[in-house]
Structure formats: structure tokens, C-alpha cells
Nucleic acid binder design. Structure first.
Lengths: 211, 211
DNA sequence: AGGTGTGAAACGCTTCACAGCG
DNA sequence: CGCTGTGAAGCGTTTCACACCT
């Protein structure tokens, strides 16, 4: 058996796939399954079965020959590897996106991610009540989050303020930012940024319409 | 000089980067630049300069030694490669996401992507007016899109109807789908699916909060 | 039989280094 | 001199094939 590689940095690709595995396992569990084979998992995620086995074997031996992987057990292990077993606080900037993604936010709660507060730059939104939160002014991020100990943030306001807000979020402790603003963010080395650009995504797809 | 690889399939990675280059070029142009070096482009996109030169040289010689790349020319060439030079029709399912992403939709229009229609499954939304479109029932997708000749679609309604709607969209001609539903879609081989799962994206980021 | 864990091979992608051009 | 275009080297990832377990 191979030693679990706690400590050593994991390739981004592997981290990315682990969360797909987690989602797939959630869905298998919801369907009433108790175990899955690497092949079943592979089919649902859309990659090769050998790759899944190799990914999982990085951390120890999670499966049983001739049986497969026990879903509950594997789910907990992956949660642990992704550091989803300890509670975590997330700040959300952009109340519209917050309102429209209630389902996603529900799934976060199931994995120990609690929201710290919701902010917005739009004066019309400030003071509104969304999903149990009162929307605060983006100007108050520093004051509100002082001592809150956030570890990540969602940045979902467009335009030029986005960049400044991102820097404030980093100051307040965010080590990872999900950037939906469409802006390109320049931030310190130690902060991980994941950018989702809807327009870009769709432009990219246009290529495949003819190939 | 290397022959442009029209016809031969391009690696997904390259397609993905080309749209980043396009976005970066748009932004350089907006800042008043007329030309850029591979190094400047690399800095803005966040990758190595050599990789950019190699990507671009796949399609011919676009740059001039000691000068760099002419922005307008390069923009047009990349648009051509991504098949963004001929008008294209896109269907949008999910009026909330539509309302919230006006900026992204504006950028699409600048690149020859016109919207065909906006649909929703939520009875409260049907009949509403959003961004110049009247929201139609998702049940009417077939009738509305018959003969419209869409080539791509955005699927932004959650829950189980998403899968069925995706299949209808494919029937109506969609060869690419931007899937914001959080569901895993099983579709014919020739359809390209790009899935954006906000919750998953954020869970993935949690790993980097501690590494 | 059926499915995992894993070295080794195969593959694709990125970086390096430099010739060549403006 | 500065910057592009590009073969070759280097690196990381995926697939293959099979020993081993239940």
C-alpha cells in the first residue's frame, strides 16, 4: 500500500476531479446505492476508470476488490481530503447571483461551508433581505468581516469596483476567490482564483458548433 | 511557415486559451493599444509567452518580429478561428440567469451571437419582459425554435426538467450547450457540453484555503 | 469471476533555446 | 537590438496491462 500523500501538493487536475467524484457520489447515494465500482463512477463523470482508481489510490486503499467502493466511506474520505470536514466561512459579494443560486448555496451548507455575509455595490439592493441575509454595502466589508475569519469569497459584481473589492476580501482573510465578475484579477501569489466568465464560455462553445 | 491547421481538430486546451486571448485583446484595444507583444499578452492572461506564440503559430504567422502582434488583425483572425465571424443563434433557458447576466450577453452580441428566444420552466416568469425578450414557456421550445436554426444554447434551470430540456434543445439543432443546471447531462457524442457548477467550483476552492 | 492497486508505456502539453527576421 | 516562429527537450498526465485480492 502506498502512503497517503498528506502534505505534498496535489496537482490541480486531481483536486478538480475529486470534487466531481464527490458530486457523483452524492448523486449515487441519493439514488439509493451503497457501493460503486470505478467503472460506474467513470461513466457518470465522463472519464476513464483507470484514472479514477489511480486518483483514489494516492490517498490509500479505499476500495475492496470484487466489490468496489463503499459510498459513505469514500464520500467522507474525499470530504476530508478537500478539507470540507471542518466548518468554513464564505463571504458573498453580489446579491443577484446569491438570489439566483439558492440551490448551489444549499449544497455548500451540506459540506460545512457557511455564509458569513452578503454584500452588494448596488444601492437598490442594500438593505434587502435575501435567503435569510440582509444585504450590506460593499463599503462595509472591512468592518463587517473583521474577526469573522472568512476563508473564501464569491465575487459576483461586474465592472471596475470588482478589482478593489477582491483586494479587500484578501485583506480580510480570503485565501480563495470564485470570480464571476468577468474582470481579470491580479492578486497575491498565495490566493487561488477561479474565474467563471459566462460570455467567454459561450464564445468558446461556438467553435465546437462547427467541429 | 507552417500550414494553418484548418480541418484538423484542435486540442481543447488551445480553444480555451484562444478565447482568453480574445478577451485580453478586447481589453487591450479598449485601453487604446494598437499592438501587443506575446509577453504583454502572457502577463494579462497569466501563462507563458512561449505558449502564446506557439498557439498562434498553429494558424500562420500573425506577428511581426521586433514589433509584436497587431491587435485588430489578431482579433479578427481569432474570431475567425473560433467561428465567430458568421452570425449564430443561441437559445436561452432560464430567465433569472438571463436577467442577471446582461453584461455577458452584451459581449456575445459583439461577437455575432444573437439570441433566438428566452424560455423558463417557472410559471411566474413566463410572459415577463427581460432585456427586450418576452419569456416563453419551456414547453414551447419545439414550436418556437422550429426553423430558427439555433446552434447553441444556455441551460440555466435547475432540477430534473433540465435533462429533458437539454434533449429537446439538441433536437432543435443545438450542437453545444452551456450547462448551468448542476445536473450531469448525457447527450449524443456530437454535442459539446460545458458545465459550470457554482457549488462544485467553490468546494474545489476550499482545498486551496489550506494549501 | 469480478474489481482494485500499480508499475511501465504512451501520449500530450509546456518550456527552453535559439535561428531568423524587421 | 527586440521579438517572433519553431524544433527539441522536459515534464506531467492518462492509458494499458496485469498481479493480486475477495
Amino acid at each position: 500500500m502506498q502512503a497517503a500523500d498528506r502534505g505534498g501538493r496535489m496537482p490541480d487536475r486531481v483536486v478538480n476531479r475529486l470534487r466531481w467524484y464527490l458530486t457523483a457520489l452524492d448523486s449515487f447515494a441519493a439514488d439509493g446505492f451503497e457501493s460503486v465500482s470505478s467503472w460506474q463512477l467513470a461513466e457518470r463523470v465522463g472519464i476513464g476508470a483507470a484514472l479514477i482508481r489511480k486518483d483514489l489510490s494516492r490517498f490509500g486503499e479505499f476500495g475492496t476488490p470484487s466489490y468496489g467502493y463503499k459510498i459513505e466511506f469514500l464520500r467522507e474520505r474525499i470530504q476530508g481530503i478537500l478539507c470540507l470536514d471542518t466548518p468554513r466561512k464564505v463571504a458573498w459579494v453580489g446579491s443577484c447571483a446569491f438570489r439566483h443560486n439558492a440551490a448551489a448555496i444549499g449544497r455548500l451548507a451540506e459540506h460545512n461551508c457557511k455564509l458569513a455575509a452578503v454584500f452588494d455595490t448596488d444601492a437598490n439592493e442594500i438593505g434587502a433581505e435575501v435567503g435569510g441575509f440582509r444585504v450590506l454595502s460593499a463599503d462595509s466589508i472591512r468592518d463587517t468581516l473583521a474577526g469573522a475569519g472568512i476563508s473564501a469569497a464569491v465575487l459576483a459584481v461586474g465592472g471596475s469596483p470588482a478589482h478593489e473589492i477582491a483586494r479587500v476580501l484578501v485583506d480580510m482573510g480570503a485565501r480563495a476567490i470564485l470570480n464571476l465578475s468577468g474582470e481579470f484579477l491580479v492578486l497575491p501569489e498565495h490566493v487561488k482564483v477561479a474565474s467563471v466568465d459566462l460570455a467567454g464560455e459561450l464564445l468558446e462553445l461556438c467553435y465546437y458548433c462547427q467541429h
